[in-house]
Design a protein around this nucleic acid. Structure first.
Lengths: 106, 106
DNA sequence: ATAATATATCGAAACATTTGAATGTTTAAA
DNA sequence: TTTAAACATTCAAATGTTTCGATATATTAT
């Protein structure tokens, strides 16, 4: 599969800066957060906070913490719906992260 | 700018398990280790331990520690050359990791 | 064998992350 | 406007990570 992606202000040598790569990697480096991300394979559009609470045997503040990591890393985009929250994958950022990884290889 | 990048197919059969995704992500989530990986964009083939020592202002045990993280995560493959060590990128594993990431998106 | 070089391991200090109880904030319904 | 539900923040304990000095191991040259 090939991806034809637009990368704003891509400069040869540094696509995403290292700090952002670090933050994204760290966000993905946790079992609960990986489980959250994997739900997007089943449920393509968005995830509601309550669904995440159902699937992760963790207290509410812990889930809030994990979602914050993913949002701060810009992998998930939060959307308010009244007093509920839903999240969508930030595909451009994921693509940039993938582009960084593939740029390491010849 | 546009990037036309190859994204390996994600197959249900040989998908990486979450533990491995976690380990790889954690290995990448450090500034020094990202710097090591970025050297593969310049120097395509392999990296010698001594070059890493030169570019990372860290004590030798710290560098040894970081390289261990990358090797344990299976991102780098160590090759002994007498009393020296060199490292090559494990491209199949990087591809699997990329495949996992792209499988999250529709 | 001995010395020198390259790398690994141990141990401890400093620092960061994860977790949940308690509590705060925001929004909507009654 | 009181109440309830959804989510965030604070704090502290437990745990994990990073760093380096000291030391160990392995390889090669003398």
């Amino acid at each position: 599969m090939y991806l034809f992606i637009f990368v704003p202000e891509f400069k040869q040598g540094d696509s995403m800066d290292s700090k952002k790569i670090e933050k994204i990697s760290r966000a993905i480096s946790d079992p609960s957060r990986i489980q959250i991300l994997q739900q997007f394979r089943k449920k393509r559009e968005c995830l509601h906070c309550s669904e995440i609470h159902d699937m992760l045997d963790l207290a509410q503040p812990s889930i809030s913490h994990h979602l914050k990591q993913l949002v701060d890393a810009d992998i998930l985009l939060p959307e308010k719906e009244g007093r509920n929250l839903k999240y969508v994958l930030n595909k451009p950022v994921l693509d940039e992260y993938i582009a960084f990884l593939s740029s390491l290889q010849a």
